[in-house]
Amino acid sequence: MKKICLFIVFISVLFSCSDSSNSNKNPNIPNYSINAYLDYNLPLYNNLKFISNPVFVSNYGAKGLIVMKTGEGTYNAFDAACPNQALASCTAMTIDGINAVCSCDKTSYNLFTGQGGQEYPMKQYRVELTGTVIHVYN
């Protein structure tokens, strides 16, 4: 009986760790390799010292990155491509406060969650903070 219980616990843990999110399974945005280092002491990234001050970073991902500090020591990074439109049909999303707005359909996506009420949320990347450097990667 003990072996069966352990097996059930193992299977439960295994399935609870799977990624069922649509965020990184979006057919509209290719999987580009991301490896960006942003030092928030540099003037270009200075807004990243403060919560809710997103920054657009060009030349990464499909259409650039939008990075925002969400709390002490925590950051979110999303691709700036409209997640529910064909890649070639739209320009990079624009920042409007704590939201990113798609240039094609004007859908607004929350930069804390990446959600916009559409089929696909924004494509999210991993973020680590080391000292003053924010590492965005996948």
Rank of each mutant, 00 (worst) to 15 (best):
V9Y: 13
F78H: 05
Q85R: 12
Y60C: 05
F112I: 10
V57D: 05
N46R: 03
T130K: 13
D39P: 06
I11D: 10
T70K: 11
S108Q: 14
S103F: 03
I98R: 11
F50P: 00
K49V: 00
Q118W: 01
Y120P: 09
I11M: 14
T130D: 11
G71V: 04
I8A: 15
I34D: 01
G131L: 10
M1D: 15
P43N: 00
K49M: 01
T94H: 02
D39W: 00
P30S: 04
A77S: 14
S108I: 08
Y40D: 04
P43W: 00
C17Y: 11
L111F: 10
I95A: 03
L44G: 00
Y45I: 00
L48V: 02
S103C: 05
E119C: 04
T132F: 05
N41E: 04
F7C: 14
G114S: 07
L129Y: 06
L6S: 11
S89K: 10
T107E: 08
N22E: 08
N24D: 07
Y120D: 08
M122Y: 06
S18I: 11
S20Q: 12
I98H: 08
F112C: 01
S18F: 07
T94R: 05
Y109H: 11
Y109K: 11
Y137H: 15
S16C: 13
S12P: 03
R126F: 12
A86R: 11
G117V: 06
G131K: 07
M1F: 13
N76P: 01
I29D: 03
G114M: 07
N138D: 15
N47K: 05
S103K: 12
P43F: 00
N46F: 01
F10T: 14
L44Q: 09
G64L: 05
G114I: 10
G73P: 02
L65D: 05
N84G: 09
I51W: 00
K25M: 02
D105K: 11
S21H: 03
S52I: 01
M1V: 12
A100D: 05
V127T: 14
Y109S: 07
S20K: 13
A100I: 04
Q124S: 12
G97Y: 10
Q85P: 06
F56S: 01
F10D: 08
K2S: 13
T91S: 10
G61W: 03
G61F: 06
E72F: 05
Y120S: 06
Q115E: 15
